[in-house]
Design a protein around this nucleic acid. Structure first.
Lengths: 225, 225
DNA sequence: GCGTAGAAATTTGGATACAACTGATATACG
DNA sequence: CGTATATCAGTTGTATCCAAATTTCTACGC
C-alpha cells in the first residue's frame, strides 16, 4: 500500500480534531465526488478499512451517512456500491437546485452581514484574479467556496445543509463531464454577477443570476452527457 | 418493564422485515416528533437500549441519522439531546418549506400518473368523510399521508427525501402547539383545494393552494408560540 | 457437457468489550 | 471556610467478535 491519503480538494474532509467517523465520511465523500471511486463500483467496508486504516465502526457510520444522502447504495448483506449517475438523476437534481439555490441567493442578498459582504468581495477579487489557464482543481475549489459562502450568507441552517448535499451530487456530475466540458473558467466567472448582486443586496438580481447559472449548468452537462 | 413498544402513529416506523437500525430510527423519530421525548431532554444510548430492547449498534445508527436531520444534537462524549425548538427554527423551516412544498405541489399536479390521481381522489374522499370531532391522531395521520402522497406524486427522489425531513420538524412543532391550537380539522380540510388542483393537473392552482397552506401553518403556530 | 446441490467465501448486521473524554463530587490543603 | 486537585461515575468513540444472508465456486450425478 504505497498510496498515502488521497488528495483533499473538498472542504468537508477535515484534517484532524474530528472524530474518525467524520474524517472517514469526508474522505470517502470526496473520493466519490472526484470519481476516485467510480460510480457503480463496490466499496466494501473492509476495502475502505484497509485503504484508510480505520476501524470498521467509523467506516460503517460514514457509509450510513453517505447512503442517507444517496451517494452510495447499501444492499443488505450484499455490499455497498457507489451510486450511479444517470440523466434522471441530473434532472431531478437540477429541479430542486433551481428552486433552492435561487432562494439561497436571494436570502444571501437580503441578509448578508457586513462580515459576509466582506467575504463576498474577496471572492469577487479572486474571480478577477483568474488568468488564462488556471488549474482545474483550483477553479472547482473556488466554485465550492462561492456556493458554500452563499449558503451561509442566507442564514438558514436547513437550507444550507440541504444545499450542501445537493451540491455534492452536482459536483460529481461535473467531474464526470469535466474532460468534455470546454469553458470551465467562463462558467465560474459567471459567478461574478451573482456575487455582485448579493454584495449589493439586490435580491431580485441575485435570483436571476443564480437562475441563469443553474440552467447553464444543466444545459452544459446535458450536452456532453 | 411494563410498557410495550410505544404507539406508532408515524408511517416511517415500520413494523418488521426492516433492519433493527431502521426500526429504531423510526421509533425514536416518532417519539421525538410526538414529544414522548421532550425537546432538550437527554437521550443516552443506554437509555434507548433498555427502552427499546435493542443493542447499541442499531441505536447508534439511528441517532446518527437523527442527528443528520437535526432532530437530536450529539455532543461528543457528553451525551445526545433532543433538539430544542425555537422561533428561529420555525421561521427557517417555513422559509424552505414555503419554496419546496410549493414546488412539489406544482410538480405533483403536472406529473401525477393515473395511479397517483386515484390516490389523490381517495384522499379527497377521506377529507369529506371527516365529521364533527374526529380524534386528533387520525387527523394528523391523514395530514401526513396527504403530504407524503404529494411528495411521491412529484416524482423526484431528492425533493421527496428532503421534504420528508422538513415535514418531521414541522410536525413536531405542530404537536408542541397542539393543545393551544383550535381549528385543527379546518386546517386539514384546507387540503381539499390543494388535492383537487393536483388531481385536475392545474399546477398554478396547486402552487397557490400550497402557499396558502404553508403560510397559514406558520401564522397559526406563531400566534400560539 | 450440463445442471444442480451444497459447501465455502464474502459481505453486512448486530452485540459486546474496552478506551477516552467530560463533568461533577468529594477531599485534601492552605 | 475557600480553593485547588484528585477521583469517580457517566457518556460516547472505536475495535473486535460472532451471526446471518447472499453469492460464488465446486463437486457430483446424469
Amino acid at each position: 500500500m504505497s498510496l498515502a491519503k488521497p488528495i483533499e480538494i473538498l472542504s468537508r474532509g477535515a484534517n484532524s480534531s474530528d472524530s474518525l467517523a467524520q474524517e472517514a465520511y469526508g474522505l470517502i465523500r470526496s473520493m466519490i465526488i472526484t470519481l476516485k471511486l467510480e460510480p457503480g463500483s463496490p466499496v466494501s467496508e473492509v476495502f475502505l478499512m484497509e485503504k484508510l486504516n480505520f476501524g470498521r465502526t467509523p467506516i460503517r457510520e460514514a457509509l450510513r451517512l453517505l447512503a442517507n444522502e444517496k451517494l452510495v447504495d447499501v444492499y443488505p448483506r450484499r455490499g455497498v456500491f457507489v451510486a450511479r449517475v444517470d440523466v434522471k438523476n441530473l434532472s431531478a437534481l437540477s429541479e430542486v437546485r433551481a428552486v433552492l439555490e435561487v432562494q439561497a441567493a436571494e436570502l444571501a442578498a437580503l441578509r448578508s452581514t457586513p462580515a459576509d459582504r466582506a467575504v463576498t468581495l474577496t471572492l469577487i477579487k479572486e474571480i478577477d484574479g483568474i488568468d488564462g489557464q488556471p488549474d482545474m482543481s483550483k477553479l472547482i475549489q473556488l466554485d465550492q467556496r462561492i456556493h458554500h459562502h452563499i449558503y451561509e450568507s442566507a442564514h438558514n441552517e436547513f437550507l444550507a445543509k440541504t444545499l450542501d448535499q445537493y451540491y455534492a451530487h452536482a459536483l460529481r456530475i461535473w467531474f464526470l463531464a469535466l474532460d468534455r466540458v470546454e469553458g470551465l473558467s467562463e462558467a465560474i466567472i459567471e459567478h461574478r454577477d451573482l456575487l455582485e448582486a448579493i454584495a449589493a443586496g439586490d435580491g431580485k438580481a441575485a435570483r436571476k443570476a443564480m437562475t441563469d447559472h443553474i440552467e447553464g449548468f444543466e444545459k452544459t452537462i446535458r450536452k456532453t452527457l
